[in-house]
Design a binder for these strands. Structure first.
Lengths: 164, 164
DNA sequence: TAAGGATCCATTGACGCCCATAAAATTCCA
DNA sequence: TGGAATTTTATGGGCGTCAATGGATCCTTA
């Protein structure tokens, strides 16, 4: 497995710790998220959602790439740099695969009792469970609108809508 | 055999396991659904039916392809990612060719005692048996009506029409 | 020394893996 | 071609391992 897939909801314990889903940890390890023996993930507030973005080296490189596409000293670059790098936290993963979400991040995502990890391929997000459900519904509607992309090139499958 | 065909109904046992039809497993193996020694299928709620869509690598690639066409960090991409990756579950297949359907998927499809596997070529669906029967009837009726319109196969019966 | 982290340990419940059995399909041979 | 032998499938159950979670101990630092 080499991408973050599926959603998992885990509890936050009394000390603020929460387990990163085992399958995500596996992806992170392949991704080389650990430099030396420091195991950590990059985590920052999502720009346009009440959630957190997180990932390993691949995510970091992507951000780098995004910024390097913009001219030095441009306002745009400065702003984006601040937005992207400014709030990044490196969260260490303990021996049992758990992280601690700092206050700032918890506030942004509005989480308390438990959190939902959402795989998005290159990265994953951390949501307050109920809030994520709403979001998921929205997303499904959107996909509906894009459905024709799925069937492109083929005659409309009698399968998908009224199969069998 | 390189596509999913036919329908099969299998039982869900006390532990929530259900056998994937042998012929489907054969297709999956050709499809290279297993990366390394991880054997698993991709499974997610069908967008417009109370059923589950499932498949192997070919299906996964299709999803990837869909997303890779969209610009990074666009709203559109994020939403699609959530709906596509977020809803996807990777179900591992045990040594006896069985999978376990997680709670969320079982709910969406409304299954409990047994399930019907429906081959759709590139992918297959998983249905609650009774529900699938209804669908199938509906589909047959529709096909009949089309036949009448097109006069396919036989010369149109000249007199009797019962459909009103 | 108190507070906060970090590491380690323990419990439990889920899941993966193995084997057993019965039914069905397929092969083999007369 | 018929029927017996063998192989494949579906299904049930036991058991060990691992992930998630809670708690204790040690370590650092203010």
């Amino acid at each position: 497995m080499d991408r973050f897939v599926s959603t998992f909801t885990n509890k936050i314990d009394a000390k603020g710790r929460v387990s990163v889903p085992a399958s995500f940890r596996a992806v992170l390890e392949r991704d080389g998220f650990a430099s030396g023996d420091v195991r950590g993930i990059y985590c920052y507030p999502s720009l346009d959602a009440p959630a957190l973005d997180a990932g390993g080296e691949r995510l970091a490189k992507k951000i780098d790439g995004l910024l390097s596409g913009l001219p030095d000293y441009s306002d745009e670059r400065d702003e984006l740099s601040v937005a992207l790098y400014g709030d990044v936290q490196v969260l260490s993963i303990d021996g049992d695969g758990r992280i601690v979400l700092p206050e700032g991040l918890r506030t942004h995502a509005g989480v308390s009792g438990s959190v939902t990890f959402v795989g998005l391929g290159d990265k994953f997000q951390i949501w307050e469970p109920a809030r994520f459900e709403e979001r998921r519904k929205l997303a499904r509607d959107k996909v509906h609108q894009h459905r024709r992309l799925f069937g492109a090139g083929r005659p409309p499958p009698s399968g998908e809508s009224e199969s069998g």
